[in-house]
Amino acid sequence: MLEISDSTIITLNVNGKDRKIVAKPSDILLHTLRKELGLTGAKPGCENGDCGACTILVDDWPIKSCLMLTVEAIGKRILTVEGLNDAPIQQAFVENWGFQCGYCTSGFLMVCHSLSKIHPNADEQTIQNWLQSNLCRCTSYDEIENAIKSILKWEVYYERTGRK
């Protein structure tokens, strides 16, 4: 049984590398990533799970890092925006003007990247469901939607649904 009582050295796998950090049970993953590892791509917004600015991937699925304890991430694969390394969704955001101020962008990128990997043939409803997890106050929602659609396998979608 894993037991952690106080500040202790733990190992997290972040962006493909094992990183040793000091953490205590009450530490929140968002703050650990930012303060211990200097990965400031995940943004603190509402810190209550509402806005999605802090979204990262844990074992390939989007997670709001403000609602995860650091110690829960032991043994998991964490991917932050710094680990995307020119993923297609990043170029798609540039080409489709998928951002304005940029504060929400890393969270949206992570959700879109995960969606493109898990459901490369996602339909409209699935795209709506996934993207509703994040807020953008500059209202570039249409552009973000265009960006994700540009990297999904839409030919398969058109063939399946018979509509464009």
């Binding site: 049984m1 037991e3 049970p25 009450s26 304890l69």
Partner: peptide, 16 residues
Amino acid sequence: MIPFDFKYYKPGTIEE
């Protein structure tokens, strides 16, 4: 930030 400390246990069985 959580403003209090607590212990964290992650058991592998119901009995634990």
